[in-house]
């Protein structure tokens, strides 16, 4: 079975031409989540100015769905306030891609986790203590 037979055009498009690959300049929030032993690692860097995410970039080791959701989540968070960004769920990212094959839904969790980790890191660095994740 090729899982990618079930990838939507949007997933393929983001996989082929991922947006925002790299490391954000002057990043003040970094999230590294996943584990290479599980097949996926995502690193998300964000730059927050006046509580708004002005830049987000990613690097991902993972399947096509993991790369596409990484790309999509960077597009979704840029321009949002930190609080707004934290409301983005993995489901929302998957929906924005026109859906993911069922066995690939777990890959989108990586994007949500990376976002939370990056925001946590930003809040810690800037002295805020209300952590985004439990």
């Amino acid at each position: 079975m090729d899982a990618w037979d079930e990838y939507t055009e949007k997933v393929m498009e983001h996989y082929e031409n991922p947006r925002n690959v790299g490391t954000a300049d002057n990043a003040n929030g970094v999230g590294v989540v996943g584990n290479p032993a599980c097949g996926d690692v995502m690193k998300l860097t964000i730059r927050v100015e006046d509580d708004r995410i002005v830049d987000a970039k990613f690097k991902t080791f993972g399947c096509g769905a993991a790369i596409a959701t990484s790309s999509m989540v960077t597009e979704m968070v840029i321009g949002k306030t930190v609080t707004e960004a934290l409301h983005i769920s993995n489901k929302a990212v998957a929906e924005a891609l026109g859906g993911l094959p069922k066995i690939k839904m777990h890959c989108s969790v990586l994007a949500e986790d990376a976002l939370k980790a990056a925001v946590d890191d930003y809040r810690k660095k800037t002295g805020k203590t209300d952590l985004a994740t439990k």
Partner: peptide, 25 residues
């Protein structure tokens, strides 16, 4: 990761030992 590489090389039918390509993960 193997699946993403096979996807990139999908002109050629190959297989991978990556968990990402197996139903059992």
């Amino acid at each position: 990761e193997g699946e993403s590489l096979m996807l990139a090389c999908r002109d050629v039918a190959l297989s991978s030992g990556s968990a990402c390509t197996s139903a059992s993960l």
